[in-house]
């Protein structure tokens, strides 16, 4: 059976589609393994393992967040907050604020974290920006 006849064969197409889906899915799992691990940590009911969280933190800090794919960084900040890594939370939130400066929720959270860490001057700047936007 030549290649053209093969690609017209319904059974071949069905099996190929399944394999193709599988290949794309595997590739997706490989490319987004950090984000997927983070998602599991975020959704998990048990407290996350701090070592795993820090490993993910170091890996993700090396990348630049995409304005449309910030959900992972946001989750990372939430997970870091759950394991009481406040300095790291501030670093992540700073990164997010640089990418999406108009996002008030992230800026407010950054301002509160800075305030809680007694970094009042930096916190004041962010609170001022939020108040000015109103």
């Amino acid at each position: 059976m030549n290649t053209i006849k093969l690609i017209r064969n319904k059974w071949f197409l069905l099996i190929f589609s399944i394999f193709f889906f599988g290949i794309v899915w595997c590739f997706f799992q490989l490319v987004y393994r950090n984000e997927l691990n983070l998602r599991d940590l975020y959704r998990g009911k048990k407290p996350p393992d701090p070592v795993k969280v820090m490993v993910l933190y170091r890996k993700m800090m090396r990348t630049k967040p995409n304005p449309h794919e910030m959900a992972s960084f946001y989750r990372l900040a939430k997970v870091l907050a759950r394991v009481e890594k406040r300095k790291e939370v501030i670093r992540i939130l700073r990164k997010l604020v640089r990418v999406v400066p108009m996002d008030k929720e992230i800026r407010l959270w950054l301002a509160v974290e800075l305030h809680n860490q007694k970094r009042y001057k930096e916190a004041e700047r962010h609170f001022q920006l939020l108040l000015n936007e109103r």
Partner: peptide, 26 residues
Amino acid sequence: GLLSFAGVIWGGLKLYYDIHSNFKGM
């Protein structure tokens, strides 16, 4: 064709795993 269908699967997976925030655009 293969890239387009891969794009459909990839985009669907991104939405499923909440990786992409712009639902309408994706």
